[in-house]
Simulated scan of single mutants.
Amino acid sequence: MVQASENLQVQPGLMRCPRVTYRMAAPKTALAEPGTLAVFGFGAGSPDSDDPRWLGVALECFDAPAPLELWQVDGEVSCGRHGDVRWSAGGGWLFAAIELNESAVGDTQSATHQAYTQLRQFMSTRDERCVLRIWNYISDINHGDGDAERYKQFCDGRAAGLGDFFAAGFPAATAIGHHHHQPLLQIYLLASVDEGLAIENPRQVSAWRYPRQYGRTSPGFARAMLMPARDALAISGTAAVVGHASAHEGDLEAQLNETLTNLEALLATADMPAGFDTHSPLKAYVRHPVDAPRVRDVLQQRLPGVPVLLVHGDVCRRELLVEIDGWRFA
């Protein structure tokens, strides 16, 4: 675990973290702005674009119309495609994404193995090969029992596809289930020419050390990642987990409070300012749509003014009702 005694002050001379914002705009307008590295739309009503920097995420937003998510960097951006991988790069940063239809590949494990193999092979061609943050969106993540559960199959396929790519340490990550009518596997990442600093939560067992009850292959991710310049913290999907066990089964508000406690523990461990502000965008993934108004109310009370995108998503453990990830900028 990273100790707070390490030098976590903003590091001069390193590239500033991409700016991450939510904005009401047309994709064409956002993509035309200087320095746009990636743009994300959410849900079935999201417009489409053939620009490699665009990704329509298979998660429905509880707010309509849904804003776009923009990543913007300092520098000229180039983009293209490499097999099934779409990518863009600029200012020492790289966005890469892959989307596969499981029905065309075979099953969850096979699709994940293929997707991560392609991503690994693509990353080997790039200078920006320090992967700092990954998002994984999986159809029906909790279907199946025991080792046949789709999330556990995903973990098996991811490990097989990556090989030893993360032998030096895992990036921050999120894995959430979506309800799209097609069994899509969507994976996207942020990478840099410079290394970040992985952060663990002292309240939780590191994910790669989970006991066997959570599957043949432990989840491979860090709880958060400090960006190379130490100017931002990318926070992994965070829920009501203490040690390695889920807490407060069936109690939405208690799970939310525990989740927020975990978020504060991450900020403290990373020597980041306590709390979140208007420049710290978060996502809240809510399992049951009926719970969305209460989640919104609690977050508005506890995190006033913080931009929170509220989406319909299933947490990787069936008993967990809500998960939060996002950014804290210094």
Rank of each mutant, 00 (worst) to 15 (best):
G157D: 00
I138D: 07
D140A: 10
G161H: 07
G161I: 10
I138K: 02
G146C: 08
K152Q: 04
C155L: 13
Q153G: 02
D147R: 08
G157Y: 03
G144A: 04
D145T: 14
I141C: 07
G157F: 08
F165G: 07
G163F: 09
G157A: 14
D164T: 12
A148D: 13
Q153R: 10
D156W: 13
A160H: 08
I138H: 01
Y151R: 13
R158Q: 05
R150T: 03
D147S: 13
G146Y: 05
S139G: 14
I141A: 02
N142P: 06
D140V: 07
D164R: 11
S139H: 14
D156R: 15
G146S: 01
D156N: 15
N136H: 07
G163S: 07
Y151W: 08
A148S: 15
H143N: 13
A148Q: 14
L162H: 02
D164P: 03
F154A: 12
D147A: 14
A159E: 06
E149H: 09
S139Q: 02
D164N: 12
E149N: 15
D145R: 12
N142C: 13
I141S: 03
G161M: 11
D156M: 15
A148N: 12
F165D: 02
H143P: 00
D140Q: 07
N136G: 09
F165Q: 11
Y151C: 14
D147T: 09
D164L: 11
F154W: 09
D156H: 15
F154L: 13
I141G: 03
A160L: 14
Y137I: 08
N142W: 05
R158I: 05
R150V: 03
